[in-house]
Nucleic acid binder design. Structure first.
Lengths: 154, 154
DNA sequence: TGCCATTGCTTCGTGTGCGAAGTATTCACC
DNA sequence: GGTGAATACTTCGCACACGAAGCAATGGCA
């Protein structure tokens, strides 16, 4: 029910956003490769290094992926010996993920951030632009969150 | 060589951007499903409907994917009878992709845009914000393009 | 004209990414 | 305390997504 094609900028903005996301992800992946990691694996290992043990679910929501996706990622990381699954004693449904010693060592050697190129771009912006961007994206996020909530997921 | 963690907004912006992209893609995928399509297939069919015949390469660059990815997408769409491959006579290396009659019919029935939720959010913004966003994203894009050009792809 | 680098596409192997369905566990409520 | 709904995770099948390697066609240049 949206009326499109009334504001030509919209198409350009969407295109730019997709470009920024896709290309940043590609460059991150290429960097991660140098450490024998994939993109998502880099994100996970950094996150565990900073936050310690995390349940699979909280890991999923933090990296914006579904549990079924993260199960696979952790499977492969466990196979490589970087992480370890551990059943929570309080709630035996919960699987906690933690870095192994080898995983911690690897995490320490990595000097790359996920979406690093995009971050660098942001860092080069004047503070005012950063604030504006933060504000506007916030509005957009609220809009999308509402749409997600109202969508037929129930 | 970037100094991170100096501007707390950066992390939040990255997170928001990833959220917007991921969730918009998911919702598009869900909408596309109602027409028996996947997300990328929806994008391709809309594009071909608007632009007519396109080479596989130009299709790839327009949807921000690699040729090897698009080959697979077109394989499946051809299997469903929506598109057709056609060898260019001018340059026999080039494969032109075009909609079949069935594909055109389907394209006409679809009232969804790729990233529609994000577009809707943009449409609800005041014009000034839209311009600001356009400008700032443009700066970021220039930054990333430079990084891509300088990366060891050569 | 001939040769080689380049271009356009496909093939292959691996890793996401997801929904649907399944299992185990916990919770809510009676 | 027992039972059904809810939660946490896994499994499965399918569709991207990509790099590397391969093949065919084209172009550049001697």
């Amino acid at each position: 029910m949206a009326s499109h094609a009334d504001e030509p900028n919209v198409d350009a903005i969407v295109e730019t956003l997709v470009y920024l996301y896709t290309e940043s992800r590609r460059l991150t992946k290429a960097k991660a490769r140098e450490f024998g990691l994939t993109g998502p694996q880099l994100t996970v290992i950094k996150m565990l290094d900073q936050l310690g043990k995390l349940s699979l679910s909280s890991l999923s929501s933090r990296i914006q992926a579904r549990n079924s996706t993260v199960t696979g990622i952790i499977d492969r990381m466990e196979r490589e010996g970087w992480v370890q699954r551990e059943r929570s004693t309080k709630d035996r449904r919960i699987v906690l993920i933690k870095l192994t010693d080898q995983g911690k060592k690897l995490a320490g050697e990595i000097e790359v951030e996920p979406m690093e190129i995009f971050r660098d771009g942001l860092a080069s912006l004047p503070t005012d632009d950063l604030s504006e961007l933060f504000r506007i994206l916030g509005v957009l996020q609220a809009h999308v969150r509402k749409a997600v909530k109202d969508s037929p997921d129930v």
